[in-house]
Design a protein around this nucleic acid. Sequence first.
DNA 1: CTGAAAGCGCTTACAG
DNA 2: CTGAAAGCGCTTACAG
Lengths: 332, 332
Amino acid sequence: MNKTIADIAKISGVSKSTVSRYLNGGSVSEATKRKIELAIKETGYTPNPFAQSLKAKKTYFIGTIVPRLDSYAASHTLIGIDEQLKELNFQLLISNTNQQIEREIETIYSLASQKVAGIILLATQITQVHLEAFEKVNIPILLVGQEHPDVHSLIHNDLEAGYAIGKYVLEKGHRKIAYLGVTEKDVAVGVRRKEGFKRAIAESEGCEVRYFETGFNMFAAQQRVTEMLEGFQPTCIVCATDNIALGALRAAQLKGLSIPKDVSITGFGGYDVTEIIHPGLTTVKLFFKEAGKMAAQNIVKLVNEESVPKRTLSKYEIIERESVDSIIPNDL
Amino acid sequence: MNKTIADIAKISGVSKSTVSRYLNGGSVSEATKRKIELAIKETGYTPNPFAQSLKAKKTYFIGTIVPRLDSYAASHTLIGIDEQLKELNFQLLISNTNQQIEREIETIYSLASQKVAGIILLATQITQVHLEAFEKVNIPILLVGQEHPDVHSLIHNDLEAGYAIGKYVLEKGHRKIAYLGVTEKDVAVGVRRKEGFKRAIAESEGCEVRYFETGFNMFAAQQRVTEMLEGFQPTCIVCATDNIALGALRAAQLKGLSIPKDVSITGFGGYDVTEIIHPGLTTVKLFFKEAGKMAAQNIVKLVNEESVPKRTLSKYEIIERESVDSIIPNDL
DNA sequence: CTGAAAGCGCTTACAG
DNA sequence: CTGAAAGCGCTTACAG
């Protein structure tokens, strides 16, 4: 059977209080300390976390709500969160909503009823219902990937990153460009990245840019690009995610176009697969794992009632590979 | 503040015992049932799971140990486990070991000290130390992906699947084949798949087959294939995983070979990306999500002390795409 | 530094 | 059907 604190007390000949004090780093004499240590080693005792949480009125669970488990972004963010949380002696509880936004709400309440100390939400959209739930459960919440003025958040620098990739393709001489984005309901990916890109475009002259919208799925993107290519032949396709870029790549290839000679393509995310495909995809790398670590640090601070900036920014970096051609005119 | 069962008792004018009985489906009169329901609705009361677990001496956590979070196999298996566990009213606790096998052992003990009801281990290797840990913690364990005579397991039918892909390439006329496997320490992937493949080869004549070993990483595989191609030019490369196949594909392409005209390639796993790359990869699809669901069902049965077969097999299917050429001689 | 006692929020025989 | 009481394994003032 499982040993309890009473067993340890009996074996080491002290009271339960003293054992508890030892466990929690209170003041215990060297001699009793040794006796207790011995008893613990001998029995393999570990405190019952349920009893601890019940009594101490606090738990060491951090709930993380993810829209999906099978995405590079989600899994790498989770890896970072998990790693950092372990270091801080918290336990990660992952809840997958399978991209159903109603389940996010349910999950917020159910995590609360499980008495988690805090919640990290890998967010896609923040609705009024979300805000209401945050309010009601009354536990620290941290948004990752999206921001909202009323909630603490950690976001990728989508605006600047969008600007950077815009500048990049412009510098490579592209002027006839298709921008393949996603729904504006997703503020980070659908609005901010495009906004940054537009700013870059606005600083350049003689551009012909058309904007298209597709889903996050690569097959949907493939089809969208196939259609697009009927009526518009850009020299460069800038995609709001790597998955979209993968779809674009395949659509172009199936059309017999050579990348980057006939058309250049860029992605956004920096997934591993962008390096292994042929040609390698030029993309904006986002640091998901690092973002996850920062998120874990922030939520724990929030739990401990330490101060945290309302908004934390994660970095990005442009990775140059083979999918973008330089078409700078000869006269340069 | 959080309401307790005492609050509900007071509001509805009955005893705590009765409320508890109502909560646990005991016999309660219609009238009191209604009063209690009202009080619960009014207060938004949810039972404290720590108190429940402490008293009832059982928990609804199932710990799942995964070697990594960022793999198609792991995440899809996890999705299946999570989905099924929710349905069975259990809560999934994911623990990532980051491919460090010592951490698997630590995690087994730490999950046990967290009083999980059962453990699912997405296994790579089963060592003596594992068996010892299973023994010591004395809670139900289910292996997924690997098997061992002493432990319950759920595995993909690697042997048959290996045989099937061997038969397949043979039927396509290939006789000069490279098999790209992994370490035999991984019994399922390193031994069984190869064994099945060899059986198919043994049934055919005039084959020249060479066996190579590489890691699970696509970049390592790419390099391995690049080297291999110096000394051996097969008409077909059979890979033990999709990631290896991706590496092989890139190596061949960088060498200027056209797939499948110059060399055919097959994978193993059925990752989404194998469909979007160009050419599409012919592969053996494994049903990770379904396997995860079965695993969840089995571990819960084990927790409830119902009987479960020592070994459960998950299915597979060959997906034909463009990466394998038919080179059947003209005389057919 | 140490121990006795109360209490965290539940569940479960037991008696009625 | 219902309630009083004990107890799950801890922690935490309080007194010494």
